[in-house]
Amino acid sequence: MNTAPAPRIAIIGAGPGGLTCARILQRHGITATVYDRDAGPDARDQGGTLDLHADNGQIALREAGLLEEFFQLARPEGQEMRQMDPAGTIRSHHVPKEDERFKPEIDRGQLRRLLLDSLNPGTVHWGRTLKTLGGPAEGPRQLHFTDGSTLEADLVIGADGAWSEVRRALSPAVPRYTGVSFLEAWFHDVGTRHPDIAELVGGGSAAAADGDRGLFAQRNSGDHIRVYIIQRVPADWITAGGLAPGDTHGIRALLLERYRDWAPRLRRLIADNDGLYVDRPIFALPVPHTWEHNPTVTLLGDAAHLMPPLGVGVNLAMLDACELALAIAHHDTLDDAVRVYEKTMLPRSTEAAQLLDGAAEHLLSTERPDFADHGNH
């Protein structure tokens, strides 16, 4: 009979990866606590829609016991993709078959709520920002939070995204700017307020690019559309242009000048948005990103392998989470579990990252067939 105390597992970050890991661990009778800097589950907008693929993200949801609930929420029609030229002419058009379920769309907020509702009460501790991670490599680890609290853990899982604090315990790597930036624009009640844009985008996504500039519009649930204005610019292009991030009119005028040769119907995706623009410069970790094995700390998702947003990130994060949780459940020690997990995860993520290294430029390519096809097969 094993009388060893239950391991203390701390997951930093309540994104899809961290929550999936906690959920699968709980299904195997293993307790894990998630710490997140947000004040609560609804503290901020969770971002747009994403597609979960049958060969990674959906595998994780199956292990989490949530696949059927996911399909009840997901939008298979969101797999529709229209590729246009700057004149607004459709060059390619993928219409999903009625039973196509390879990569249906779901809003990030809906996915997070699905995962949160599946966890035991009290699993997630909100308003806890990790300041530093200390303690010896063999453990126990000391987690110091910005609120002054400290706790110990036998395993710390960094699921804390691009600017991971946990990563510092394993690697000096920091994300680098790719040279490509997104500017996000929102459209609400599109069926009523923006029917021309609703018709342009259709049930899924629509994209256009000319080699230097791009637009990517994506339907979300609730009659919303998000548009990503994609440019090859310095990371500080707004302030370098003498503008403030909240200067919607100034930014709009600058963008309309930059896209002046594009079709008027496409320029509406820039000019008719509701509210402010959101600046999202694209960063990626150096390739390859690996580290020496540590028995008490590991990473998953963007903390481990931040890549350009080409339909890979959340799927790999959830597959990481699934494989790590299963390794913990099926091995006698945390050290063995982390070794087994990293033996698979690091080569897989390196292969994907090498494929996507510099691929932020693909977002501007006139040859780009599908925003989310790169690096998934």
Rank of each mutant, 00 (worst) to 15 (best):
H293Q: 12
G275E: 02
G301P: 11
D247P: 02
V312D: 04
I251G: 08
Y259E: 05
V227P: 00
L215D: 06
A206N: 08
D223T: 06
L200P: 04
W237S: 04
V312H: 06
P234Y: 08
R252M: 04
N315C: 11
L243Y: 04
G214T: 09
N220S: 06
A337E: 03
Q231K: 11
D335H: 14
D320F: 08
L255N: 10
G211V: 03
D272K: 03
L316S: 13
I251A: 08
G214F: 05
G222W: 09
D320C: 10
D210L: 13
H293D: 14
F283I: 02
P308L: 05
D247I: 01
L324P: 02
A271P: 02
T248W: 05
H224C: 15
F216L: 15
L285Y: 07
H305F: 12
D274W: 12
L200H: 00
A217F: 11
V233I: 07
H289L: 15
F216N: 07
T298V: 00
D335N: 12
A329Q: 11
I230W: 00
L269T: 05
Y228D: 05
A209G: 06
G311M: 02
V314W: 07
R268V: 03
P234I: 09
G214S: 07
T298W: 00
V278G: 06
R258M: 12
I328P: 00
A244Q: 13
L300T: 08
D336W: 01
P308T: 06
S205C: 13
T296P: 03
L215P: 03
A284K: 09
A321Q: 01
L319G: 06
G313S: 14
A208W: 04
A325N: 09
V233F: 02
I270E: 08
A327V: 03
H289I: 02
A235M: 10
A303Y: 09
Y259I: 09
E199K: 13
G313N: 14
H293C: 06
Q218V: 15
T239W: 00
N220T: 00
A271L: 07
A329E: 09
A207L: 12
H293L: 13
C322F: 00
N220W: 01
N220Q: 11
V233K: 10
Q218T: 14
E199P: 03
P288K: 10
L254T: 14
L299G: 08
I238F: 10
I238E: 10
D223H: 07
P264C: 04
D274G: 09
P286I: 07
R267P: 03
A208H: 03
P295A: 09
H224E: 13
E199Q: 13
D272S: 09
M307V: 15
A337N: 00
Y259D: 08
